[in-house]
């Protein structure tokens, strides 16, 4: 029973992190119908920013370590905007869907390898400082790590904030308009390019928050940290229904659970294979995902 409960908590924690990343995938996909392969690498950017800013925060300013996330969010947003401006926008304006896709893969590789080429980062993994001091809560006989609670709370809060942003603000309305019909949105006075840029910035900021929560639990940052995390989060986004915010959250939690239960009860080597199998099965049975809308292709 204890194993079951602790596995459940690990699953919830992992799932919350996947959900945070999946939200970024879903937002960008919803608006430009393209998978941003480089999204996973925004996590890496955020992670390294945290590694470099957290010592400054604690030693020079005396603030808690997690406040470094402010810088991580800023840097990630800038990188996200740059990727859109330098690569995706020119290709989207003149190329086909295929060339946009290839550009996205290339951008992901560029970010990963560029990070290695920067002397301060280098190819070796870096160990960040402790973010949340180790402590735990005991509730009705179950011990829960505080980091786990923070992760779940933060992911939930982000989800609520994002839903409010999309549903209640004028920017959110613009986003929904662009995702539904770009030409009509332009006619209604929405600046499509600016909306897409802002979406990239928000998606990348979510990746920075995910990076904070991830390295709080697994304190190791390396240049390919984002590729497997990003891929699993993508699986989560597809599972929940890409383009749907609650879907991303649900998908993230399911994937997190699946992974932690496979590791606990079957084998840790099979965890990744299992996650990809889920993806394949979902794509075959219901390609639009659990909460996705089925759109018919018209000629």
């Amino acid at each position: 029973m204890t194993i079951f409960l602790s596995t459940l908590m690990v699953g919830l924690r992992l799932g919350s992190i996947y959900a945070l990343i999946a939200l970024g995938y879903t937002m960008v996909y919803g608006i430009i119908r393209m998978i941003n392969f480089a999204h996973g690498d925004f996590i890496m950017v955020g992670g390294y920013t945290l590694v470099f800013t957290m010592p400054v925060m604690t030693e020079k300013l005396g603030l808690p370590a997690w406040t470094g996330v402010v810088f991580a969010i800023i840097v990630c947003a800038i990188v996200g905007v740059l990727v859109e401006l330098l690569a995706y926008r020119p290709v989207r304006k003149k190329g086909t869907g295929m060339s946009a896709l290839i550009t996205a893969i290339a951008m992901s590789l560029i970010l990963e390898n560029l990070a290695q080429a920067i002397p301060a980062i280098g190819p070796n993994p870096k160990i960040p400082q402790v973010i949340f001091p180790a402590s735990s809560l005991t509730l009705a006989g179950i011990t829960i790590d505080t980091t786990t609670i923070y992760t779940i709370v933060v992911a939930g809060a982000m989800m609520v904030l994002l839903t409010l942003l999309v549903k209640k603000t004028s920017f959110g309305r613009a986003m929904r308009a662009v995702s539904e019909n770009k030409k009509a949105a332009v006619l209604m006075g929405v600046s499509v390019d600016r909306t897409i840029l802002l979406t990239f910035a928000i998606g990348a900021s979510l990746a920075a928050v995910a990076a904070l929560m991830y390295i709080a639990q697994y304190p190791l940052v390396f240049t390919t940290i984002g590729s497997s995390l990003g891929l699993k989060a993508f699986v989560a986004a597809v599972l929940g229904g890409i383009g749907s915010l609650p879907g991303a959250m649900l998908g993230g939690l399911i994937i997190g659970m699946a992974e932690s239960f496979t590791v606990s009860y079957i084998s840790s080597a099979m965890a990744d294979t299992f996650v990809y199998l889920i993806l394949i099965i979902v794509l075959l049975i219901r390609p639009v995902g659990i909460l996705g809308k089925n759109v018919r292709e018209k000629v």
Partner: peptide
Amino acid sequence: IFGYPMLVYSIILVIVIVFRP
């Protein structure tokens, strides 16, 4: 930069796709 050939190849890929698809 050239110590990481994949960086060079992906830059080539982006340049080719943007300027001569």
